[in-house]
Design a binder for these strands. Structure first.
Lengths: 210, 210
DNA sequence: CGCTCTTTCAGTAAAACTACTTAGTCGATG
DNA sequence: CATCGACTAAGTAGTTTTACTGAAAGAGCG
């Protein structure tokens, strides 16, 4: 497995691109393998491009960053997209994350945080800074809102799921009905907004819910 | 007996290594005599290296930290290994301690605790901070003999599994038959020794296979 | 007490996964 | 050229999960 992370920059401001280069230059494992200022050019070249993570400015001249994001995730789902934005608006953030962004940063991000998030994204596919105000008041009820906390029982079930136990086995472990465990599972998925146990475990580990 | 303690850092994150350097720099008796980001490079260099304690990140890009740990204890049993981990899960801790780790810390450890544990390890060979529930239920008896590495396609499938896609969806994404994806899935589970997708994702994240 | 939340369990049905086996193609290796 | 591993695909069969709904007992709370 290669240890290098190949990055592609898409941002209309050369200043930003150069800034990113200098920020990332001290990190040998991070390599900027290309950059582009026009979204359409980028998208048409996308099939030929080889990189791991796209660093994407949300505000672009010719296409909206959101459209680029969706297009990238449609064509090359294996590519992770880290979104940079002028806006701190959680509304944008949620939309970006829903559209498949692996991370969302405002442009005044600390460089170390950016670097960390790149590694995190490479490792786990996503980077959700816990601090980022998911509990901010303006947020509507949203599946992305993982601020909901699991109950004790749900965490118990999760812990046994992680080591590969089926509902039936977990039920036996606790002396409960398998149907009960299944209910817990479904409730966990509902709370985390996940659609199966694989994703659930991924989110649980990422969010440190174990 | 020399009063200096020679440390070697093995961690893929330069940030972590740099952080450790700055944490440990105020202590004249602690000397970092080397660092490495790649497990394989480290292991091949190991016979020439002289140090007392290895500070080891459990999640490494090319080899799992557990494998490194076992290898170090096999080749150089006199070296103490202090494990750093992202995970607070006692299961990992127990596995690490069973494999010969002298101490186990999560990465958000207090620096003073780390320093203390280094001295403790040097003096007594081990550092067991808290009461560890060794009676924790059903530790799988170390099926971790997975020197086998996943293929590119298998990793691709894994990555989409992590974001909650079913075999059918993954197949559609790649233009393949669902049966093919299922085959990949089963091969992954076979290689990792897991019994369902939840456990598979857990191991994959833990072992840094994504 | 009424209210909410947690925990418990079940019916029903569809969808997905797991297990084990066989097998063809293709590219690389020796 | 033969072999091997990776990738593809499918047969068959059993198991598990997911989805949606309903519901009852118990704990905690104002």
């Amino acid at each position: 497995m290669k240890d290098r992370i190949d990055l592609f920059l898409l941002d209309d401001h050369k200043i930003v691109r150069d800034g990113l280069r200098s920020i990332l230059s001290p990190y040998p494992s991070l390599k900027i393998v290309g950059e582009e200022s026009h979204a359409k050019k980028f998208l048409s070249a996308l099939p030929e491009l080889k990189f791991d993570i796209l660093i994407l400015d949300l505000s672009l001249p010719d296409l909206s960053g959101m459209e680029v994001l969706k297009e990238v995730k449609r064509l090359r789902p294996e590519i992770s997209v880290i979104v940079l934005s002028m806006h701190n608006n959680p509304e944008y953030m949620i939309r970006a994350l829903k559209a498949g962004a692996a991370a969302y940063h405002s442009k005044d991000i600390q460089s170390t945080v950016l670097v960390e998030s790149i590694h995190e994204v490479k490792k786990h596919g996503v980077y959700y800074p816990t601090a980022i105000s998911l509990n901010s008041p303006s947020l509507p009820q949203d599946p992305v809102q993982k601020g909901e906390v699991l109950t004790q029982k749900e965490r118990d079930v999760l812990k046994l799921m992680v080591i590969g136990m089926s509902s039936k086995q977990i039920a036996a472990e606790y002396g409960l009905s398998p149907r009960t465990i299944e209910t817990h599972r479904l409730n966990i998925m509902k709370k985390l907004g996940t659609s199966n146990s694989a994703e659930t475990i991924a989110v649980a580990i990422r969010e440190n819910l174990l």
